[in-house]
Design a protein around this nucleic acid. Structure first.
Lengths: 255, 255
DNA sequence: GCTAAGCTTTTCGATATGCGGAACGGGTTG
DNA sequence: CAACCCGTTCCGCATATCGAAAAGCTTAGC
């Protein structure tokens, strides 16, 4: 999944270091030998790299097993709170989840993908395998569409170019034309809708959140099962609630 | 063993890569030139490293400024949810915060330090500069003392050796004897107390959380201002509530 | 209580590879 | 227009990284 380019200017050593990190991410825990075999490098190489990572506090050793340390949690939490807007979004997400009894989230764009920054679940919310920090396809989520609708065309083109429009269900938007039509609809409506574009049986509405310069920062969204997400509730009440929250958040951000 | 020998078998290139990562952590955002100057390396070197980090998705570029990406959030969240016990602790922390109206947290030990894994604040909770992911001195926190009390002496010695017993206020435990006395008291009491050992004006109680083999996993704690943390509430009610939660959590973990 | 097998750790020399410095291109400011 | 910032590229050299093999450790099996 390393869709990196030729890496003409890449530092190979750093690449192997992060190969190890990402293996530990995937495997949860692994022995030195396992890691060496996995990447086809000598055990001594892995050993040296693990020693370095341990010294720096990114990896901890438990017997003969290695795992990632909680330093990543520390740094990760930092990236989540650095932008004041992200912090302000948190209570809004909780509020939406409580009011609607569904799952609400605040999502931002990074590298052409959607990233879950905050998430809260009402009592009846569905449990999916989404989690804070998760990266998701931007064109197949309500929040993602809301963000795209606020971007200029060049940026959208860039995203399409980098990631394409992969299909997840028969409802996924997979063509450039369909996407642009949808984005136009979002701009008219003021909010976005995702009808099972990513996961079958899941509908969502999303609203962009912009700063005082009208630059999009992220988006709020609410998602739930199709059987509850329909009728007047889905068409009117929910969007109104969502847009209200997005608006309040924008005011908080702008002061 | 060789923990005090930094760099002996270290990979220098990886070190400079993480130097850059940690500079971005500290500076929030920086230009290529700034980073080069900061570490006394050539701009070309920094450029190559940044290119590698961007390729891998750990750094994003905004104009001529670089910052850490939300990939760290993704990995960090993973390290936080990998252990089932950590996940089970979350609702208990919230519950404690709501019941006591103070700040509650779940903390684990890593590399001889205390790390905040979950945190929740009641309506009247004090706001301090603690946050999820934060690393704190283990001997100067209630949860840390609770964890130390459950460790065997060799492990405790190891922790003291690595980090010492630095002082933060006039109440901090700073001698080996005082620490061992305190740990003994914790074992008798069944819970730990931290009276302004880290921050003046802040008291806390902590209770260890163990798995079915009686191995300590982490600790729950409740903290608040000295004016509320006193009398019968602090001496009896609060510890009872805390130990109850810790007990329930242990049962959940063991099934 | 011994050997064997699994693993990590260390050593060491060859060579690939990261490094620095200088030159380049492209904006922005005076 | 020139000076100055930024990032980017090129290239030769020294060195830090690599792999293979052998040396240490534990644990397991008999």
């Amino acid at each position: 999944m390393n869709s990196a380019q030729p890496g003409r200017h890449a530092v190979k050593t750093t690449d192997t270091a992060f190969d190890i990190v990402e293996s530990l991410w995937e495997l949860e825990t692994a022995s030195l030998g396992t890691l060496a075999e996995r990447h086809g490098v000598a055990k001594s190489t892995v050993h040296r790299h693990l020693a370095t990572l341990i010294n720096r506090g990114y990896v901890v050793r438990e017997g003969d097993e290695y795992r990632l340390s909680l330093k990543f949690l520390d740094i990760g939490q930092f990236t989540r709170t650095r932008e004041e807007a992200y912090v302000l979004a948190k209570p809004k997400v909780r509020e939406l989840a409580e009011k609607t009894d569904e799952r609400a989230q605040f999502i931002v764009e990074e590298n052409g993908r959607a990233v879950y920054v905050h998430m809260a679940a009402g009592d009846h919310a569905v449990t999916t395998n989404t989690y804070v920090g998760k990266h998701a396809p931007i064109h197949a989520s309500a929040a993602g569409l809301a963000i795209l609708a606020k971007m200029d065309e060049a940026t959208v083109e860039n995203v399409i170019e980098r990631h394409g429009l992969p299909s997840y269900t028969e409802y996924t938007i997979t063509t450039r034309d369909a996407l642009y039509d949808e984005l136009e609809a979002v701009r008219e409506r003021g909010y976005s809708v995702n009808d099972q574009g990513h996961i079958r049986g899941l509908r969502a509405v999303g609203a962009p959140v912009c700063d005082r310069n009208d630059e999009v920062i992220g988006a709020l969204s609410i998602s739930g099962p199709t059987n509850r997400m329909q009728g007047e509730w889905f068409d009117d009440k929910l969007p109104a609630l969502l847009c209200g929250s997005a608006n309040e958040l924008e005011l908080n951000i702008a002061f």
